[in-house]
Write a protein that binds this DNA or RNA. Structure first.
Lengths: 181, 181
DNA sequence: CTCAACATGTAAGTAGTTACATGATTTT
DNA sequence: AAAATCATGTAACTACTTACATGTTGAG
């Protein structure tokens, strides 16, 4: 049950319409919680039905017409409750590691090329994060909210750094491997 | 569509029954692809219907009675195909980072305790991985399959190392933060 | 003979994905 | 007036989760 809370956070940062939220989920929040526009519209409907958000006044609801939402006090309270509540980490799911393990059994043919591709993708993502860090988080210590957001970005940067290093190491191992296929 | 391939890999490593697979998914493969026994039984049924696996001969199927499976040639071929096929990395989903971002808006009350708990969990997981590394992967270079499996374990170790470091850093930031709640 | 542990399964619900539908507004 | 883009939505499907059901085997 995280998508509704991701949306509440985004709406508290700035009231938005469904499509605007979708765009913001394509960057920023979407870096660690992705969502499609279908998910978002459905969830906006639910949140409104539960009285956690409402459409901005002075907007007639109509298909094809923009409809912006804002968070109600009950929504903010629910978000605070959820943020503070203990939650166990979800078990990892990583397809690439699974494929590597499978390749130990059925051979590594074809896998190396995709590792290379992933390395390139992670390098690009890392560069994008570093760009954001340079732009939005100058070295002087900012307001507490900014320091928290910087922490989140740091996690993204460090994770992408891990992947680029690990993939580089994996590719080096691959080239030292006899062709097993 | 990764679960069936995780199961094929596990069965190729060693023919097993549903419960045995469940146990192995609680460690080893489950470290990066978790699954419950319900998922596994359902998937075993599908894989058998598709002709990718079969029950070991000399076993009468009966409820409550152990039923072991082995991979058929078609199953091995499908696993090899899937391993070699290019796949985009799935977008990240991390609840803890989402909660941290929410805390920038609704306050950090309660979150610190859970960060501490997560740090402890990741430390334990890291210790477990390092134990496995010491036991199963001695420093001399083993067979190619072992080197591939070691690579997978290295990813687990490095990821847990990242989390312990990042959480330590985050907690240090927290204690330097004014109470915003 | 009862109880715990082993073993396989069914049912119902939630979350996420993919494909498609429809109206409104702006551009050419 | 046609095409592109903006904007909101429906429908169907797949994967995963949670709760429960049922039979078998071995220990005390």
């Amino acid at each position: 049950m995280s998508l509704p809370h991701a949306i509440l956070t985004a709406l508290l940062e700035k009231p938005s319409s469904g499509l605007e939220l979708t765009r913001r989920f394509d960057k920023s929040i979407g870096y660690f919680w992705s969502a499609t526009h279908q998910q978002i519209y459905r969830e906006l409907g639910r949140l409104e039905a539960e009285g956690l958000i409402r459409t901005l006044p002075s907007q007639q609801p109509a298909r094809g017409q923009k409809k912006s939402y804002e968070v109600l006090p009950a929504g903010r309270a629910e978000l605070a409750r959820w943020t503070a509540a203990a939650q166990d980490p979800k078990p990892q799911r990583d397809v690439l590691l699974l494929r590597l393990r499978a390749s130990a059994v059925v051979g590594t043919a074809g896998l190396e090329a995709d590792l290379r591709r992933h390395l390139e993708l992670h390098r690009r993502q890392l560069a994008e994060y570093q760009e954001i860090e340079k732009r939005d988080f100058p070295p002087d210590r900012g307001a507490p909210e900014d320091r928290l957001r910087h922490l989140v970005l740091r996690a993204g940067i460090d994770l992408e750094t891990f992947w680029t290093q690990w993939l580089t190491h994996a590719l080096a191992e691959f080239s030292a491997l006899p062709d097993t296929d």
